[in-house]
Amino acid sequence: MTAVADPRAAAHEERPASAISFDEVYRSELSYVLHSLRRLGVSDAELEDVAHDVFVSIHRHLGEFDRTRPLRPWVFAFVYRIARDHRRLARHQKEVGGSEEQAAALAPMPDEALDDERLRRILVEALDSLDIEKRRLIVMHDIDGTPVTEIAKVLDVPLNTAYSRLRLARAALEKALENARSKP
């Protein structure tokens, strides 16, 4: 009589000791994924669905993760690709031209808290006007604090190219901020 091996035990034995579990990634990176998706322009109404897509993709590729590299830039690569594809859908394209509601939202507010909200909206509008390639560099480096050396690895480009792209992204953001500030 032969013993039947437990398939769960065999799967566990095949996993390298240095592998990271999906549960660990999910618990440690859920908040980061949600914030990054917002920063990349995913609406609050669709945030959970898009985050789900990110984690499904991470789950599929978790075996490819190199534990010698930081986790966050690897996770951000998934966030970026899913957000980019999500924004390309026709239903997410924004119409050109402003409405009275948008103009009212950008009008100066007397209270300091409302002024902060106005500045936040200007920044969001400026970020929304950037193409997704430039936006991801701003989010990765200036908001999330990812070093340019890691960004270069994630993008698979030379370090100087990553610095150049970041400089161009910042210049585009500055121009977009000027345009957003000049609106009534």
Rank of each mutant, 00 (worst) to 15 (best):
A77K: 10
G145C: 06
D66C: 00
D53H: 08
A51D: 08
L89Y: 07
S99G: 11
S57N: 13
H12K: 15
D53K: 10
D144I: 03
V79W: 06
E178D: 14
E133P: 03
V42T: 07
R91L: 08
L34R: 15
V50N: 01
L47N: 00
D23Q: 14
A17N: 05
R167I: 12
E95L: 15
H35L: 09
D44N: 12
A180L: 06
D144A: 13
L173C: 02
A104P: 02
L159Y: 15
L166M: 03
E101I: 11
H92C: 09
R87F: 02
I132Y: 02
L62I: 01
F76D: 07
V157L: 06
D66R: 05
T146A: 08
F65S: 00
P70V: 06
A3Q: 14
A51T: 02
R67Y: 06
H12L: 15
M1A: 13
H12N: 13
L34M: 12
G97S: 05
L71R: 02
A77D: 13
D144N: 14
E13R: 14
G98D: 12
P73S: 00
S28G: 04
L123N: 12
I82W: 01
D111H: 07
P147R: 09
G41M: 03
T68W: 04
V79G: 03
D49P: 04
Q102E: 15
L159S: 06
L177M: 12
T161E: 11
P184W: 04
L155I: 02
R121H: 02
D116Q: 12
P73Y: 01
L114R: 14
E29D: 10
L114F: 10
S182M: 11
I151T: 01
E100S: 10
N179Q: 14
P108R: 06
A172E: 08
L177Y: 07
L168Y: 11
G41A: 04
P108T: 03
L114D: 15
V96L: 11
D111N: 12
P16L: 05
V75W: 00
H52P: 02
R91N: 07
H12Y: 11
R88E: 13
R38M: 12
T146I: 15
L47G: 04
E117H: 11
R8S: 13
E174Q: 12
V154P: 05
R84D: 11
K134V: 04
S36R: 02
R8A: 14
S36P: 00
E14Y: 08
I143E: 14
R67T: 15
L34D: 05
Q93H: 12
L127E: 06
D111P: 04
V75N: 01
V124K: 10
H92I: 08
G97H: 00
H12V: 11
L30D: 11
V154H: 01
L168R: 15
L123I: 08
L166D: 05
P16A: 04
R118S: 06
F76H: 10
L119D: 11
L106Y: 08
P7L: 02
V50L: 04
A83Q: 01
P110I: 08
A171K: 14
P7V: 04
E14T: 09
R67P: 15
R120S: 12
R121N: 09
R135A: 11
S129K: 05
Q93M: 07
G63Q: 07
